[in-house]
């Protein structure tokens, strides 16, 4: 028998504790950050803060126009990136055969995902704002964010579509459905929970992005009415409040609102996805 420093049982216990601690630390980091932001933010957080316009560049008043700007850019990014990303994923998962074009699309998506957001911002300025003449507007901002959300949506959608069992496709084709009918009526509904998660992940990234829209959306303190109006989404407002020394208090208030919005979106969609999945699975 070989010499052991520790008995297997003790060793087992130690490892369990090590993993437990890793898990706890991860959760603690999250809780501490969210807790700290909410704690600091609660000093200024009120219904008035949420529903009124900023006064004196944001030293007082509220952030209603910023919330509207954020909704604008996030919705625009989702509306543009979701069909594009899901479309590319359907092409790759259902129609393409492994070849250079598939590799190129995958490589493209991965590269897109790894470009720093400030570079997206610069591109947004020169392409959307100046070249396409869209000016500083929530549309320009939303389009830049669409580029940023695209790789996430594409990747998650592709994985979800790939995970749909081959037997569903065979069953559909054997009933005389065409390829497109099979994709549209069987594969996509079955992949919907995963695709939705991907779209939400992509949009969550978009809603919390400041650098990418820095040069595209303007910095207006007014409520954007049309998509061609400039705006100031929450993360940008937060950035300006903090870096220009306007009000750290209000910066935390803005951060708290952002965190709450993202939490609500995540919880609500997770819930919806869960329910839909249960319905699909007959549980």
């Amino acid at each position: 028998m070989s010499f052991r420093l520790l008995s297997p049982k003790v060793y087992q216990k130690i490892m369990k504790i090590v993993f437990w601690i890793s898990g706890i630390i991860t959760i603690m980091i999250l809780l501490v950050i969210i807790g700290y932001i909410l704690f600091k933010g609660f000093e200024v957080l009120s219904l008035e803060f949420i529903f009124s316009a900023p006064i004196d560049s944001g030293r007082a008043g509220g952030i209603f126009p910023m919330i509207i700007s954020s909704l604008y850019v996030t919705l625009i990014s989702g509306l543009v990136a979701a069909p594009l990303g899901v479309g590319a994923a359907v092409y790759l998962a259902e129609y393409s055969e492994d070849g250079w074009i598939v590799k190129l699309i995958r490589f493209g998506a991965e590269t897109l995902a790894s470009i720093p957001s400030i570079v997206f911002g610069l591109f947004g300025l020169s392409f959307f704002v100046i070249f396409l003449g869209l000016g500083w507007s929530v549309l320009s901002g939303g389009l830049v964010l669409a580029l940023m959300a695209l790789p996430t949506i594409f990747k998650v959608a592709e994985v979800s579509i790939d995970a749909v069992p081959e037997s569903y496709r065979e069953g559909s084709l054997a009933l005389g459905a065409t390829k497109w009918e099979t994709v549209y009526r069987v594969v996509l509904p079955a992949a919907t929970p995963g695709i939705t998660t991907g779209v939400i992940l992509g949009m969550a990234r978009a809603i919390s992005e400041a650098a990418a829209i820095l040069f595209a959306v303007g910095a207006a303190l007014t409520i954007p009415v049309s998509i061609f109006d400039p705006g100031r989404p929450l993360p940008l407002h937060l950035y300006i409040l903090a870096t220009e020394g306007i009000s750290l208090e209000y910066a935390f208030g803005t951060a708290a609102v952002m965190v709450i919005i993202v939490l609500i979106i995540t919880v609500v969609t997770n819930n919806m996805v869960d329910r839909y999945q249960k319905k699909l699975m007959g549980r």
């Binding site: 069992p165 037997s167 569903y168 065979e170 069953g171 559909s172 054997a174 009933l175 005389g176 459905a177 065409t178 009918e181 009526r185 069987v186 509904p189 079955a190 699909l280 699975m281």
Partner: peptide
């Protein structure tokens, strides 16, 4: 098929599927 492969849809929609397709 060898393994039962109903679609993740309702019982009704499974049977109606082929009809709709045609």
């Amino acid at each position: 098929f060898q393994k039962p492969n109903p679609f993740p849809k309702s019982v009704f929609d499974n049977v109606a599927y082929g009809l709709k397709v045609h």
